[in-house]
Simulated scan of single mutants.
Amino acid sequence: MSRLVLAIDTATPAVTAGLVRCDGSGDEVLAERVTVDARAHAEQLTPNIVGALDDAGLAADRLDAVVVGCGPGPFTGLRVGMATAAAFGHALGIAVRGVCSLDAIAVGTTGDVLVVTDARRR
């Protein structure tokens, strides 16, 4: 059975929204929108979601789940991503799941992996 998932990550300066079709044979990225601006998470996330849906030719009511990056990252960016994911999940009546952003970055790699991101703590 195929599932359509909205993926959101706001743990870094990249405000990311993507649509992924998941089935037993693998995952397919249908569309993604990324805006790199550490100070525009709130302004860019929803337009990126809407743009990705448009790019994929899909309506939001077709979504089966939302996955959101849980950090580590700056509090404000994470709050925007999690609140937006929760709002979509609540409005559409679909599951919302959190994923460690470092795990998401490392997925698909082999062997030992070290993921390093800028914590922006000077």
Results as ranks from 00 to 15, higher is better:
A11N: 03
G71H: 09
A11W: 06
L78V: 04
T35S: 12
G57K: 00
A83I: 14
E32N: 08
G51D: 04
G24A: 09
A85D: 05
V5F: 05
C22K: 07
S2H: 15
C70H: 08
L102R: 15
G98K: 12
T35E: 12
A56D: 05
L4H: 03
G26I: 10
R21Y: 02
H41T: 01
G93F: 08
E28N: 05
V68Y: 12
Q44I: 07
V29N: 01
L30K: 00
V29G: 00
I8T: 02
V50W: 08
R120Y: 15
V5R: 05
V96L: 02
T84D: 01
G93D: 03
R121I: 04
T16D: 06
L92H: 10
E28R: 09
V67H: 08
C22Y: 07
D27Y: 00
F88G: 06
V99A: 12
A31M: 00
V113Q: 09
V15M: 02
L53V: 01
G93A: 07
L114S: 04
G93W: 11
F88R: 07
L63R: 07
V36W: 08
A83H: 06
R120T: 14
L30Q: 02
I105H: 13
G24R: 10
T84Q: 02
S25I: 13
D23P: 05
R33W: 03
R97F: 15
Q44C: 11
L102G: 12
A87W: 04
R3M: 15
R33C: 10
L78Q: 02
D61W: 07
L78H: 11
A42D: 03
G24T: 08
V20C: 00
V66Q: 14
A91L: 08
T35M: 10
A56W: 01
T76M: 09
G73Y: 05
L114M: 05
A40G: 12
L30M: 02
E28H: 02
T10E: 12
A91V: 03
L6I: 03
S25R: 14
A38F: 06
P74F: 07
F88H: 10
P74C: 08
V80C: 10
V116C: 14
R97C: 15
R21N: 05
N48R: 01
D54F: 08
M1W: 13
A83R: 10
L45S: 07
G71E: 10
A83V: 15
A38T: 12
